[in-house]
Computed example of a mutant assay.
Amino acid sequence: MFFQLDKKMDIYSGLDLGLRNFSAHVGFRYFFTEVLGVFTEAGIPIASYKTNSVGFDKLNNQFAFNVGASFNL
């Protein structure tokens, strides 16, 4: 293992393919129990499909930060 973390902790990364952009994210999860945990995630756009966006289309090509609940089924 690269990082020596507790079994309750998890670091992950991934790619996102949306209808209006292509992006990457990195996140961290912590489980309080075997089933319930929390996560935080940050993502950045890599490429947008519309280069001359105006109005609300610009919102699809910004830095994103997410916090939420995580369930281990």
Rank of each mutant, 00 (worst) to 15 (best):
Met1Cys: 01
Gln4Thr: 08
Leu5Cys: 03
Leu5Arg: 11
Lys7Ala: 07
Lys7Pro: 05
Lys8Thr: 10
Met9Trp: 14
Asp10Ser: 07
Asp10Asn: 10
Ile11Lys: 03
Ile11His: 07
Ile11Asn: 05
Gly14Ser: 09
Gly14Leu: 03
Leu15Pro: 00
Leu15Ser: 05
Leu15Ile: 12
Leu17Phe: 15
Leu19Asn: 13
Leu19Ala: 14
Asn21Ile: 07
Phe22Gln: 11
Phe22Asp: 06
Ser23Met: 08
Ser23Gly: 15
Ala24Glu: 06
His25Gly: 05
Val26Trp: 13
Val26Met: 14
Gly27Cys: 02
Phe28Val: 04
Phe28Gly: 04
Phe28Gln: 01
Phe28Cys: 01
Phe28Ser: 03
Phe28Ile: 07
Arg29Gln: 14
Tyr30Glu: 04
Phe31Tyr: 15
Phe32Ser: 10
Thr33Glu: 08
Thr33Asn: 14
Thr33Leu: 07
Glu34Pro: 04
Glu34Asp: 15
Val35Asp: 03
Val35Asn: 11
Val35Phe: 11
Val35Tyr: 13
Leu36Ala: 15
Leu36Gln: 11
Gly37Val: 05
Gly37Arg: 05
Phe39Val: 04
Phe39Arg: 09
Phe39Ala: 03
Glu41Val: 00
Glu41Asn: 05
Gly43Arg: 07
Gly43Ser: 12
Ile46Ala: 07
Ile46Arg: 11
Ala47Asn: 10
Ser48Lys: 07
Ser48Ala: 05
Lys50Asn: 02
Lys50Leu: 00
Thr51Ile: 06
Thr51Ala: 01
Asn52Asp: 14
Ser53Asn: 12
Ser53Val: 10
Ser53Ile: 04
Val54Gln: 05
Val54Met: 09
Gly55His: 13
Phe56Tyr: 09
Phe56Lys: 02
Asp57Gly: 01
Lys58Thr: 10
Lys58Arg: 14
Asn60Phe: 15
Asn60Arg: 06
Asn61Lys: 11
Asn61Trp: 00
Phe63Thr: 11
Phe63Val: 13
Ala64Arg: 15
Ala64Trp: 00
Phe65Met: 04
Phe65Val: 02
Asn66Arg: 13
Asn66Lys: 15
Gly68Arg: 03
Gly68Ile: 08
Ser70His: 12
Phe71Cys: 06
Asn72Glu: 12
Asn72His: 14
Asn72Thr: 11
Asn72Lys: 15
